[in-house]
Structure formats: C-alpha cells, structure tokens
Amino acid sequence: MTPASHQHEHQQTDADHDHDQAEILDLDAEVLAEHTASITAWLPVEAAPLHIVDLGSGTGAGTLALLRRFPGAEVTAVDTSAAHLHRLLAKAESEGVAGQVRTVQADLDTGWPDLGTPDLVWASASMHHMADPDRILRQVHDTLAPGGLFAVVELAGFPRFLPADAPAERPGLEDRCHAALDRHHAEHMPHRGADWGPKLTAAGFTVEGERTITVNLGPPHTEAVGRYALSSLRRIRSGVAETLAAEDLAALDRLLDTDGPHGILRRDDLTVRTERTVWAARARRA
C-alpha cells in the first residue's frame, strides 16, 4: 500500500467513524430529549446565563437543549470533529438559532482555546474522554465567570435494549457484550464511570447538586428506538468482536442483520434502559 492510499484509507476510516458516531448522537438526542430537558431544567442557575460553553458538543444535543432552556443565551460549541460541528450548525439553522451558536474545533488535550468568560459550562459524556481530566476541570474553573456554574453529565455506558432472555438462542447476550465493552473501556478510558464530585471539589468548585436520571422507555417503542438500538449494538460490536465467544458473535450478527428475520429492527420488545448522572458545581466567587 502506498503512503497516499494508506492516508486515503485512514481518512475514509475517520469519516466512517464520524458518520457512525454522529448517527448515534443524533438518535440519542431524539430518543432521550425529555431526559436531557429535565437535566437542563434542574440546573441551579442563579440567573439565566448569557454565555454558555458546550465542551465536547458532538452534534448539538446539549447546545440545542440549553438554548431551549435559555433562549437569550449564546453558546460556544467545542468539539474535535469538524463533521460534528457542521452537523450541529445545520441543526441550529433548522431551529432558527444559528446566530446564537459559535463553533470551535479543538482538542482540549493539546491546548485550551479562547472561550471567553462563560456563565455556564456544560460537558456531557465528554470528560471521561480527556487524557488529564483534572487539568481540564481546573481550566474550566479558571475560565468560568466568578460564581459561574459547571454541569458535568456522564452516562452509564451504552443503553440496554433487549430483554434478559433474548435472543432465544443466546439469552443474556447483551449483558455479555456490555461486560466485554466495560473491560475494553477500563483499559482505554480509565476515567469512564468516575465519581466527578471529589474531582470537582479538588479543582476548586463547590458541588451544589448531584442527580441521577433513570431512563426506562417502552415497549412499545418508536422507530427511532429501533435505529438507536441497531447503531449502538453496531458500535459495541466494533469494540468487542475479538473477545466474544463465536456463538455470541454469530447471535449478535443475526441481530444486526437488517434483512434477516431475527434482526433487531423486527423486534417489538425493545426498551431503552440507562442512567445519566449530573453534577452541578459552582466556581469560586471573586
């Protein structure tokens, strides 16, 4: 393989990953919109923020939910992916709020961009991706306006969708897939599942609230839930295929076969089960 063809293949892989990730983020935003709205409604803001920063904004679930909650605000959306930010701006345009959104493409592990002095910083499912999250927490504290609020939202991994006795030929398959993925993440993302309360305190914040949102939707389920389950299990497969038993991998592939009779899109017993925890932390006042 020539260097040019290798580079093209690498770029294609990155593009495919961005597309797959964007699809999951969009479906997550659609399926869990009410839960995200309940988190933004709970935030203990003292006054409606005028400048919000969304760290690791993805395709805009948090950005748009925050603008619905605080319609007078402007949001700076920060993400490493140009494709995600482009998709975010298209969504903002369709909702008539593009003029209130600024995007910044940046890798926070390599440097901190000029983000102004926001009143509220939101980080949903992004802090555990940071190489040195304690440094990022201190940077957020120093960036916030005095008395500003930092909301850290973390997920309990990918949602679960299948009943415990499914599929019939390999009951418990989803739990085994999640266990394998947890082992993979423990090696590659050591901060996933962290208790962010003590870390926020160590960075100079006062934690003013912590709340866990339990999600349990359906059945019956919407068409979006089926696509959400399909996209999520595809991503899980990409991380655990090499460690699953052959029988489990074959059963998983039958679920992912959109043309087969046992595909997950044909099931009428799907639910969306997960948890999200949010910490609200106040920066020191001047």
Results as ranks from 00 to 15, higher is better:
residue 1 M to L: 10
residue 1 M to Q: 06
residue 5 S to D: 15
residue 8 H to I: 13
residue 9 E to W: 13
residue 9 E to I: 08
residue 10 H to A: 15
residue 12 Q to C: 07
residue 14 D to T: 12
residue 15 A to T: 14
residue 16 D to E: 14
residue 23 E to S: 14
residue 25 L to Y: 15
residue 28 D to L: 14
residue 32 L to Q: 15
residue 35 H to G: 10
residue 36 T to V: 13
residue 40 T to I: 06
residue 44 P to R: 03
residue 44 P to Y: 00
residue 45 V to P: 00
residue 47 A to K: 01
residue 47 A to P: 03
residue 49 P to S: 00
residue 54 D to V: 03
residue 54 D to K: 01
residue 54 D to R: 06
residue 61 A to E: 11
residue 64 L to R: 12
residue 65 A to C: 05
residue 66 L to E: 04
residue 69 R to A: 15
residue 75 V to C: 04
residue 79 D to G: 09
residue 81 S to W: 09
residue 84 H to F: 15
residue 85 L to I: 07
residue 85 L to F: 05
residue 87 R to M: 09
residue 88 L to K: 01
residue 89 L to C: 04
residue 93 E to F: 05
residue 94 S to Y: 03
residue 97 V to E: 00
residue 99 G to S: 05
residue 101 V to F: 04
residue 102 R to K: 10
residue 103 T to E: 02
residue 107 D to K: 09
residue 108 L to S: 06
residue 109 D to N: 12
residue 111 G to L: 09
residue 116 G to N: 00
residue 117 T to N: 11
residue 120 L to F: 07
residue 121 V to C: 01
residue 124 S to T: 08
residue 127 M to V: 15
residue 129 H to I: 03
residue 130 M to L: 14
residue 132 D to K: 10
residue 134 D to M: 05
residue 134 D to S: 14
residue 134 D to F: 02
residue 138 R to M: 09
residue 142 D to I: 02
residue 144 L to W: 11
residue 149 L to Y: 01
residue 151 A to G: 05
residue 151 A to V: 15
residue 152 V to Q: 10
residue 152 V to M: 04
residue 155 L to W: 13
residue 156 A to W: 10
residue 160 R to M: 13
residue 163 P to V: 04
residue 168 A to H: 07
residue 173 L to W: 13
residue 173 L to Y: 11
residue 180 A to L: 15
residue 180 A to M: 11
residue 181 L to C: 02
residue 183 R to T: 15
residue 186 A to T: 13
residue 188 H to F: 06
residue 191 H to E: 10
residue 192 R to F: 14
residue 198 P to E: 05
residue 206 T to V: 14
residue 207 V to M: 02
residue 212 T to N: 07
residue 213 I to W: 15
residue 216 N to K: 11
residue 218 G to C: 10
residue 219 P to M: 10
residue 221 H to F: 03
residue 222 T to H: 08
residue 223 E to Q: 15
residue 224 A to E: 14
residue 225 V to W: 04
residue 225 V to Q: 08
residue 230 L to K: 06
residue 233 L to P: 07
residue 236 I to T: 14
residue 238 S to W: 02
residue 238 S to L: 11
residue 250 A to G: 02
residue 254 R to V: 04
residue 256 L to Q: 06
residue 257 D to S: 09
residue 258 T to I: 15
residue 262 H to Q: 14
residue 265 L to G: 03
residue 268 D to K: 02
residue 268 D to F: 04
residue 269 D to W: 08
residue 271 T to A: 12
residue 271 T to K: 12
residue 271 T to G: 09
residue 272 V to M: 10
residue 273 R to C: 11
residue 277 T to A: 09
residue 277 T to C: 11
residue 279 W to R: 07
residue 280 A to W: 02
residue 286 A to W: 06
